[in-house]
């Protein structure tokens, strides 16, 4: 169908408007991070990279970044393993209870974060897990498992189970079949679940605010405390760094999957 030029222009404008609306708030942090003054004013004045230097040199910032990285990596691995096993088990369950179990496993996604945070905080106080690495990893893993479960379930649904029968007939036991046939074929699902789990933990704030203490702070907590206490443009620098890192990671992941699909 041929579009009238007028229609085309209007359509283009509408798209542009939506795009600006969605992306602009994110992009505002980029110029702000090069502000010369210690303020979060927009538009910024002058140009300086001092806030980037501050991010690297100030132990408050660098250690919280390292903490977040540590927690997120551990969560990604743990959630990928547990979530994959859960997806596999639910997929093979013949009982009708599997639907119910799946729902239970997905509740962390549905339950309001504050409610969850209060519950976790209460238990952690008793168990002395507040402000500890295991405490953060445990709480974030719980939040991340549903993402892995969804991603792996999706790839198990398109996985042809008859391939397992074929492997069996060729002499492979259950474990060998899983290792040589099932696992390689659902790996894209596991990897995207892993990525989601990493991101979930890395930018988690609600539960983290409750279970944090001055000794162990993650990056989102540090950003939040910093911005409520003083208008430190380091926040904008951190935001800019995160923006570009996630764009590269997600973009790279998408490219990788696209190539995978072509072969």
């Amino acid at each position: 169908m041929q579009m009238r030029p007028m229609t085309r222009v209007l359509l283009g404008l509408a798209c542009l408007l939506v795009a600006v609306w969605l992306v602009a708030p994110t992009l505002v942090v980029v110029p702000m991070s090069f502000n010369e003054n210690k303020s979060l004013a927009f538009p910024p004045q002058g140009f300086s990279t001092q806030w980037y230097a501050n991010f690297v040199n100030n132990p408050d910032w660098s250690s919280s970044f390292i903490n977040s990285l540590k927690v997120a990596v551990l969560v990604a691995i743990l959630a990928a393993i547990v979530g994959t096993l859960a997806a596999f088990g639910l997929d093979r369950m013949k009982s009708r209870a599997s639907g119910l179990l799946r729902m239970v496993l997905l509740t962390p996604m549905v339950v309001p974060g504050v409610v969850l945070a209060i519950g976790i905080y209460a238990v952690y106080l008793d168990m002395r897990l507040v402000g500890t690495l295991p405490g953060f990893v445990l709480a974030h893993t719980m939040l991340a498992i549903p993402f892995v479960l969804i991603a792996v379930t999706a790839s198990l649904e398109v996985f042809d189970k008859r391939l397992e029968l074929a492997a069996t007939s060729l002499g492979a036991g259950r474990l060998t079949t899983f290792r040589t046939v099932t696992l390689p074929l659902i790996l894209p699902g596991i990897l995207s679940g892993l990525l989601f789990a990493f991101v979930t933990s890395f930018d988690e704030i609600i539960v983290s605010l409750f279970i944090t203490n001055p000794y162990l702070r993650t990056l989102p907590v540090q950003i939040y405390t910093s911005i409520t206490r003083d208008a430190d443009p380091t926040v904008a620098a951190v935001g800019t760094i995160l923006l570009f890192t996630t764009t590269i990671v997600i973009g790279g992941g998408l490219l990788l999957f696209a190539r995978e699909r072509r072969t």
Binding site: D160, R162, L163, L165, A166, A167, S169, V181, P184, L185
Partner: peptide
């Protein structure tokens, strides 16, 4: 025992 399936069941990877 060798088995040949209707839907080939070759390992795609």
């Amino acid at each position: 025992i060798g088995v040949v399936f209707q839907h080939y069941a070759l390992f795609p990877h």
